[in-house]
């Protein structure tokens, strides 16, 4: 009997992580409910709802894959979650962490403070603030040049995109690119930005911020995601209620999938389904991109950032970038 109790306590106490880690998990941030939903991707059931302080929006996986960082804006905190169990490892005090992302070389973490109009560059290893760049106004989405030397941040309040030297914190350029720019993605030497106040994706020259092309998708072009095989680019259109499907090489629009409920962030499951948060429908859609059909899983209020931990026993299975 004692042996049985010991075995049970070992399992329940998390001392046998391999047992707990066998299932693929989806983490969904509920922005208007101060919580994170942890969903078992096999059963499609929410297995845990993790409370945070105030208003979380986005997340980032540490380069070693051991912690999932949840930025809590109004709580001025970053929660470190175990990406296998969902347990809170610790909480760090960080000012207004709306969007957070590690550089490709894993040396830096950039945090956009949307409410406080600031962009903070942290040393990723120590979480020491290296540079604070005032940004007028509403810095939201972040991406990097592949060599990690420059970070690009969209400024929703001033219709601009800002390029910052990561090492020095110097602003390289700050250029108007379109109304309420949102998602930022580096693709084949160009920067693509969803222009949420209009109906297109701006193709921006990373050297000077000039808009070279406008790819019309639909009203409220918001965020951009490249499929794991790099063959497809998806753009969610917030006002139109749709997801545009583009060829990443030519940027030609191949088609459009209707999805109501404010489609926002996405991640890609091994079975080919795309998991999409629907901000105003309080669900995650499991979209089959081949047919455009989707099923839904209920989450908390205003689901926003999403990350699929599909290889829970391996470190850093996928980047959480651009979420």
């Amino acid at each position: 009997m004692k042996k049985l109790l010991l075995a049970l306590s070992l399992v329940s106490g998390g001392l046998l992580p391999g047992l707990a880690a066998a299932r693929p998990l989806a983490f969904v941030i509920n922005s208007a409910e101060a919580s994170v939903s942890m969903i078992d991707m096999d059963t499609k059931e929410e297995v845990k709802r993790i409370p945070v302080l105030r208003e979380p929006h986005h997340m980032a996986l540490t380069p070693d894959g051991k912690s999932l960082l949840i930025g809590d804006t109004a709580g001025n905190a970053v929660f470190f979650l175990d990406p296998v169990t969902g347990d809170v490892q610790r909480r760090a005090t960080i000012s207004d962490p709306y969007q957070l992302q590690y550089s490709p070389d894993s040396k830096w973490m950039v945090v956009a403070g949307l409410a406080r109009n600031q962009i903070d560059i942290y040393d990723a290893a120590t979480l020491t603030l290296a540079h604070r760049i005032p940004a007028s106004s509403m810095p939201s989405h972040i991406n990097f040049s592949p060599d990690s030397s420059v970070t690009y941040v969209s400024l929703q309040g001033t219709d601009a995109l800002m390029a910052i030297d990561v090492h020095t914190g110097a602003v390289l350029w700050n250029t108007k690119i379109g109304k309420s720019p949102a998602g930022v993605l580096w693709l084949d030497g160009k920067i693509l930005v969803g222009i949420m106040g209009a109906d297109y994706v701006a193709v921006v020259n990373p050297a000077n911020g000039a808009v070279e092309r406008k790819i019309v998708t639909a009203k409220g072009a918001h965020n951009l995601f490249i499929s794991p095989d790099s063959h497809t680019l998806y753009v969610c259109n917030r006002v139109d209620g749709s997801i545009s499907v583009l060829d990443p090489k030519t940027l030609a629009v191949r088609g459009r999938i209707a999805m109501s409920g404010g489609p926002d962030d996405m991640d890609f499951a091994p079975d080919g389904k795309i998991w999409v948060t629907r901000r105003w429908a309080h669900t995650v859609a499991l979209l089959d991109p081949a047919t455009g059909q989707f099923t839904t899983i209920e989450t908390g209020r205003s689901p926003h950032g999403i990350w699929l931990n599909t290889h829970p026993n391996q470190p850093a299975p996928t980047r959480v970038s651009a979420k």
Partner: peptide
């Protein structure tokens, strides 16, 4: 559900028309 409907069919289109899409979260 009602708030989501209001947001999607009234607030978001209105903000889009007024060039105020940066306030979509606050609108919700």
């Amino acid at each position: 559900t009602a708030a989501g409907w209001l947001q999607e069919h009234f607030v978001i289109p209105l903000l889009y028309q007024l060039d105020m899409m940066q306030w979509e979260d606050v609108g919700y």
